[in-house]
Write a protein that binds this DNA or RNA. Sequence first.
DNA 1: GGGATTTGACCGAT
DNA 2: ATCGGTCAAATCCC
Length: 341
Amino acid sequence: MENMKDVEQMSLVDILKQGGELSNQLIKNQMNPLTSKETCEHLIQKILLTYDKTIACLNSSEVLQSDPSPIPGLVESPDTSAGVSPKIGNSHRDVFKKRKTMPRWNEQIKVCSGTGLEGPIDDGHSWRKYGQKVILGATHPRAYYRCTHKYTRGCVATKQVQKTEEDPLMIEVTYRGKHTCMDVPNSSSPVVSLEEKSKDIINNLQQKTEPKQLQNIPFKFEQDLKVETEEINPKVVGCVPSFSFPSPWTESENQDIWEQFEDNNILAKLIPPATSESNYFSMSTFQVLPFPHGISSEISDMITTPTSVTNSFFDKDMDSVEVNFEPNLPFDVLDYFTTCV
DNA sequence: GGGATTTGACCGAT
DNA sequence: ATCGGTCAAATCCC
């Protein structure tokens, strides 16, 4: 089984690398005014195909994994079913027994505040802080959040938020458990097909004749990215293309991106334009969260606003996506978030 | 007054 | 024994 998983992950990496190369080609072509629209369109189709391949690969690996709890959060012991408060008839001991058997996985995100994006950040969920602890060896305390609907809908999702050692402006978020409170379809965030997104991207490309203007392209690849992670160690098993903007990126930098994936280094960083007045905002990697909603409200939770709020930042379009941003690429943040949201 | 946060205590895991 | 995760009473805030 292990070997099989290795093989699958190897092919996944290959597919993802292919997607990355295609993305680079697309950018290069886009920078060339002589490139035909059809060429770009063809490239985009191929890129999207790599997504499909990866998803298919992931789905097959999911089946292969003998996870006895295909729907985390719904396979709890009876006392954790929706609507039943653990306060009733539950001692501490019961609670911890439950925790032990609870299927769980986590995700880690690092996001940096100070992006100039004042205001709430929304992962689509409301969280309630239930604890805070000083962690050994950590400078900053770790905050514990649970889904507001834990008792009303039996949602078992929790997250931990902690400022990083190296940079207090960076926070690390660890998710646990999938939300089971999102059964009701969210009509406000309709699913967009790959084709529609492809057209959207193409239309944007058409409108951008100068490479510099590429910075205004709403990036929506992430809508299609999906990753399933299981267990405690986060694994990048998703279809994550390398995506380069017309920036002075080097091949080695792109290689670094993929090495990050291969190292399962799951990070998302929003590094603010510390020294420049312009908004620089580059993407190097994408990582997909297995949540209905990914990047969450922890930034504002930790830094600017109280918890248990519904914030908006990446909004629905950024669901399930984790992104590395680096301060090299010109990217109009405000424009991006006003045109995309 | 109701909901959210804080914080000390409890308990399982290591 | 120590650490991490959670509970729950007290407190705060709207």
